[in-house]
Write a protein that binds this DNA or RNA. Structure first.
Lengths: 149, 149
DNA sequence: ACAATTCCAAGTAATTCTATTGGTTATTAA
DNA sequence: TTAATAACCAATAGAATTACTTGGAATTGT
């Protein structure tokens, strides 16, 4: 159930850019802050640019800037865009459903759908702004309830 | 955020064995029901045996049986045993924590911890019996609440 | 002009995932 | 006792993915 390093690195980059809004950051600077190699970052930032999360300036004094404001960057979407569906199995994916020969009568699919929904519930309601403001609430014990009873 | 096919196949096998409790099933029969190759299943079943979920009988009339009763087979544990931590990132794993150089002050870790906790919440409360009885509740819209307010 | 910096394509190395091959050992039934 | 059945086991091979590298082309500011 891992998130790939590509997703992790993309989020690290967005966070760093979010912490320096208004100033242009070079890939090198982002690399220092995120501990990701310049060459790999390059590819990730290019992807983030195509997805319109960031903006670039070429040439001397160039670099990267956030293009959307943090409250409009939804973490679930970033992950989906960079590494595919949030669903643990294709059969339970809403954005990229894949059929499965076992599907009719499959007793596993409801579980995967439930997992997909819980993950999506969390990640689609979290924005870059939430991360920047440390607005994530950790759950412990009894203050966590999945179903309204 | 995918579950590997090994985990999926293991759960399919346990489900099939759960549907035929009391009767010994050969790998071949399990293969037909799960649509997994005999050779790959062999390896998975061996692992499930070492983990004590199933029991085997060698020789003619041999095959596999569940060894634990379905209500004692916790899905989260099966997945963890077969493919590692439920956590999307090592830094947020409770069972197999891995340190990260960015960790102090990392604004991503709380998110990964939250995701880990939600996934674990679902999978550690689901048993094979729940799957066999189709006792998984799909969430929709407003009957799903993550935090008690 | 020149240095800085993004852009881009291609390739490589490592890892993990999935599956196969070729046998060995234990059990049952005839 | 023999033959058939079926689990056990080790080694490895192929495919896919991930992570990263290389080498240069294009753009911009001074």
């Amino acid at each position: 159930m891992k998130v790939s390093s590509k997703g992790e690195y993309a989020l690290r980059s967005l966070l760093v850019l979010g912490q320096h809004q208004g100033t242009v950051m070079t890939i090198q600077e982002i690399s220092e802050k995120t501990l990701v190699s310049i060459q790999y970052l390059e590819k990730i930032l290019l992807q983030l640019k195509k997805l319109d999360y960031v903006q670039s300036k070429r040439g001397a004094k160039g670099g990267y800037l956030l293009h959307k404001s943090p409250e409009n960057i939804i973490i679930g979407e970033v992950i989906r865009n960079l590494e595919g569906p949030l669903s643990p199995m294709g059969c339970a994916s809403i954005t990229q459903y894949e059929p499965c020969p076992l599907e009719q009568g499959c007793q596993l699919k409801p579980l995967w759908s439930l997992v997909r929904d819980t993950i999506a519930y969390v990640l689609e309601r979290t924005t870059l702004e939430d991360l920047l403001l440390n607005r994530i609430r950790l759950m412990k014990g009894e203050d966590f309830v999945v179903f309204k009873e």
